[in-house]
Write a protein that binds this DNA or RNA. Structure first.
Lengths: 238, 238
DNA sequence: ACGCTAGGATTGTGGAACAATCTGCGTCAA
DNA sequence: TTGACGCAGATTGTTCCACAATCCTAGCGT
């Protein structure tokens, strides 16, 4: 879709894409203030178009806007993580069920994705391992055959990557999951749907626990670093 | 969430909300060109902020942008309808399964929604019947307990409403579905999940067929009215 | 130390402008 | 008559500039 040919891409969309990538690659860590004048000049675009791009990223949940305080790269809260995994459970489990009627090419994508991940591990291209694993799960959800669900899920995984970005030892964290991806992949392709379902559920539970640890650690840091202006008594939102 | 208290709402968001409503209410029919200067002056805002609002609506799938041709209220294609119902099947069926562990207040929402729909039928407030029914299905998906899925699904149903908007006899079309909503509601609340699942599936198949008829009829009209510049041979996308 | 005020920085929004592109209409040739 | 060509106006995409509102920080007084 939308892949016809040469629609000239609006500038704003290109900027949005660039920012998306910066965030995904971890060049813009959670909590970073996004000053629009600075970014505008950096990208060589007007402040308006840049703000348009930011608006899209906000809708995707990658950044947070606060009135008169501008945009900040989102820092995942514990509740955010729960939310992400609620979505993952719903969609990935549905997809496993639905794999019964998925067309072969889409099933082959699963194997391709895992193979890429395994290759990344073998080549010790650590910074690609996490991305490759996410690609596998994206491929799982793609079994549902729904373009809009794919897009939605892509946004969810992008948010999850926010947590990865803050991890110090991403390689060590990511590697153990790849064999489990492989196992799930083979079960699905073998038509062992109930086993695949059970394993996916287990996987997601474990993964959620792991990410929660990371996020909680981050919250500690943040809390420690912001104990200054808490003197009098103004408390409010997150 | 975001219900804390009085965050001053950005102007652009208010405009987006207003436009969303106009489209939902059918005041802006599919295919309508959205001229930004006109809308900007009408809402009393700058062209920039209006375009920001349009950008959001584009992301939600309610309007379509084409480079240098501006924004148009989306007209659902047959494939779009299939897509919408793929999503509905995935999410609503998952939600029915998940109703086993949904908390009581969320279950009560189901009944409230159906009751509103029934009331609308009884009062012959026809233009509210469709909306109320969609609210019921929104409530079903809310059983999953996921804020982001709720938001995503809201967008999907908004697109579906685009089809409703073009119907001549919306009342006659909508009314028959309400008893079926009631039945599904009661089955879910009664814990009869397999029956509820089966009935929901049936419901969605029937509904999809109905909407497809409407959309196909619309495509006929559109086709008939646009047989002019098809002389030489320029073909293009959808 | 603590609260308060002033000034600068940043955001939210509007206005005018301009190049690029589309659209419709008139002209001209077949 | 019909169809291609081209031009002028309208519309879009984007920029620059401006300004009120709000936030943040530092310095002041007590």
């Amino acid at each position: 879709m939308t892949a016809s040919s040469n629609d000239p891409v609006p500038t704003g969309d290109r900027v949005a894409e660039a920012l998306r990538e910066r965030i995904a690659e971890g060049h813009l860590l959670p909590g970073t203030q996004l000053r629009d004048t600075a970014l505008a000049t950096e990208f060589g675009v007007s402040r308006h178009t840049l703000r348009g791009a930011l608006r899209v990223l906000e809708y995707e949940g990658l950044i947070v806007y606060q009135m008169h305080k501008g945009a900040v790269v989102k820092t995942l809260s514990v509740e955010d993580v729960h939310e992400i995994y609620r979505v993952r459970r719903t969609l990935e489990l549905s997809a496993v069920e639905y794999s019964a009627v998925a067309p072969q090419p889409v099933l082959d994508e699963l194997d391709a994705a895992v193979r890429t991940a395994e290759l990344a591990v073998a080549e010790m291209a650590w910074n690609q391992v996490g991305t490759a694993s996410l690609h596998f799960h994206q491929a799982v959800v793609a079994l549902l055959g729904s373009h809009s669900i794919d897009q939605f899920f892509r946004g969810i995984l992008a948010q999850l990557r926010l947590a990865f970005a803050t991890m110090q030892d991403e390689a060590g964290w990511q590697t153990p999951w790849i064999p489990r991806d492989r196992e799930i992949c083979d079960l699905i392709r073998g038509g062992r749907r109930d086993s695949a379902r059970a394993l996916t559920l287990q996987y997601l539970d474990d993964s959620e626990r792991g990410v929660l640890d990371v996020v909680r650690a981050g919250e500690m840091n943040q809390q420690r670093s912001s104990r200054r202006r808490t003197s009098s008594g103004s408390r409010r939102e997150a």
